[in-house]
Write a protein that binds this DNA or RNA. Structure first.
Lengths: 155, 155
DNA sequence: GATTGACCTCGACCACGCTCGAAATCCTAG
DNA sequence: CTAGGATTTCGAGCGTGGTCGAGGTCAATC
């Protein structure tokens, strides 16, 4: 299937050939589905129009993959599609709005950091409950755990 | 509007009266909307049936609020509704499944911790970009920043 | 030249987690 | 007794982020 066909003039398998990659190959490399790749494009997340073959098929080049990777990082950290589109628009607009780009990224960064802090705060309660369960199960007196309208204190 | 009506025989305003709280009050205390409170109930997240007045209105007591708070913590850490329902079912089933409850919570804990780690990993790239923007903007040579099909390397 | 599989567009559909509106009921204040 | 606001149920609707399928095109292989 994935036969490596050693060609004298080509680099490692992971290098992107000058002709670019098909959408399927791009999908494998980015970890997105081809559907999602097309969706992101439709949604305006992709800065530069993706190159096409004369027959109308997408060819992904280095820069495309790099940009898409940035998109996945932003998504993975919870930035909504709209936010990424906004960022893409700024980048696409070219020089002169770097401060806005910075603002956008910084705001996102702060947002995520705040989210992590909150997450950890909420986790405390859960971890506490886990500890209680563990302790009581180990002690063998799990019967004293909370049950509906029961007497104890650890749901 | 929110007039505090000092009553001799009642404790602090934040104490829950024996008759319980209306859904509106419960909403204010939990930070959820009344819609969401009812939704959670419908969705099977609430372990014990919420008490009702003879006229059919919900009355929330201490335990209800505590349980709902747990639900919000689980939600806030990304546990899906189904997961919380599962947990609620276990608790509702009473004694004998404490190990399952523990498994569920531990799995969630691990899941969230892994998520945080991944989040922080992804944030690195973003923070890196922020640094680059900051550095270049400070240096006043923002023109060298990435633009569509531009020469530089920092989108 | 025919087949085969990857790719194309377009619009519909899905899962999730709420959110809302209508119409009826309750209950408290005047 | 009445008016008003809070609450009830039920079902529909919404925003987000994909995911999918139909029907057609492209291109490498036999």
């Amino acid at each position: 299937m994935v036969e490596v066909n050693p060609q004298p003039n080509s680099g490692p398998v992971h290098a992107i050939p000058p002709v670019g990659l098909s959408i399927g190959e791009a999908a494998r490399r980015t970890g997105l589905s081809v559907h999602t790749l097309r969706y992101y494009e439709r949604a305006g997340l992709v800065v530069t129009p993706v190159d096409r073959t004369h027959g109308g098929r997408r060819r992904y080049h280095q820069l495309d993959l790099e940009w898409i990777t940035i998109c996945t990082r932003l998504r993975a950290t919870g930035m909504p599609i709209k936010g990424i589109r906004r960022y893409a628009e700024l980048v696409a607009a070219g020089r002169g709005n770097e401060d806005e780009r910075l603002d956008l990224l910084e705001a996102h960064l702060d947002h995520v950091l705040a989210g992590i802090a909150e997450l950890q705060e909420n986790l405390k309660l859960i971890a506490h409950k886990v500890d209680i369960y563990r302790g009581r199960l180990a002690a063998g007196d799990a019967d004293r755990l909370w049950a509906p309208r029961g007497p104890s204190s650890a749901p």
